[in-house]
Amino acid sequence: MIVFRIDRRSGVATYLQLAHQVRQALRLGVLKPGDRLPTAKDVVEATAINPNTVLKAYRELEREGLVEPRPGQGTFVRRSLARPEAAVGSPLRTELTEWVVRARDAGLERADIAALTDAVLDEWFSSTQVSKQVKPPPEPSLPPHPSPQSMEEDT
């Protein structure tokens, strides 16, 4: 079960905070496919926010294909965001580690390497903005998976 925490001064819309925390839990494996999300009633009783905000966050996650509502039972996790491709020992990670070692040997600083990877990422995921918005638009156009945020945190 996931416990939500609302930061009232962050400036980030509350429903986005909730959706983000669910995604985070999926990535960390706290939530697994088949798990039930807390009901809107449970969430609002603990956080004292408008129930519609919870429903909005769950609809958002449903739109992303992460969860699905089952009538009369609640909202359930459909798939995980934990990525075996990014786990320690996976081929992709091993290759990247080797590449970073070579880059360092070539004399690049940490900031240089980060700038380089950012530049390449921007080239390949050009339609999206990585920088965080202070005020997200009410209906943000979310990128196809993997989202840049998840890439950022998984590396």
Partner: peptide, 15 residues
């Protein structure tokens, strides 16, 4: 207590 009370009200709204 404020959070507790508002939580009670919101739970009733959700219910």
């Amino acid at each position: 207590v404020r959070i507790e009370v508002m939580g009670l009200v919101m739970a009733e709204v959700a219910d």
